[in-house]
């Protein structure tokens, strides 16, 4: 089954994303901020999708997306942003950084899983 890296500084959000993904059979790796996620990626942790929050300490989600796109083995990995930010400007920033898609919290598990199934298929 595909492996997904879930990045969020909130333990409860990581738990809810994890429960949702695991219910569909995905393997889940977790990181509590952008820096930890980047460290995992640089240590060659292979994933099929990254789901990241935006507002996090140490490294925010948009910067993480940009840094991951610079890694050769992450150039083709879908990067989904999951955030409370809904503004067009922030979405464009994410898109320009290399994000694959933008999900506004609170997410619906059904909708998130359907989106992931499309991306990872």
């Amino acid at each position: 089954m595909p492996r997904i890296l879930a990045v969020d500084d909130s333990p409860s959000m990581r738990q809810m994303v994890g429960v949702t993904l695991k219910s569909a059979g995905y393997e889940v790796l977790e990181a509590c901020d952008g820096q930890e996620a980047l460290d995992l990626a640089k240590a060659q942790a292979a994933v099929d999708l990254v789901i990241t929050d935006v507002n996090m300490p140490n490294m925010d989600g948009i910067t993480l997306v940009r840094e991951l796109r610079a890694l050769p083995h992450y150039r083709g990995v879908p990067l989904l942003v999951l955030t409370t930010e809904a503004s067009a400007e922030k979405k464009m920033e994410g898109k320009a950084a290399g994000a694959t898609g933008w999900v506004v919290k609170p997410f619906s598990p059904d909708r998130l899983l359907a989106t992931i199934a499309r991306i990872v298929a």
Binding site: K91, G101, V104, T115
Partner: peptide
């Protein structure tokens, strides 16, 4: 109101 309506939305680029 627009922001409230956007909650839960998904956009693929």
């Amino acid at each position: 109101r627009d922001e409230l309506a956007a909650q839960g939305s998904v956009e693929l680029f």
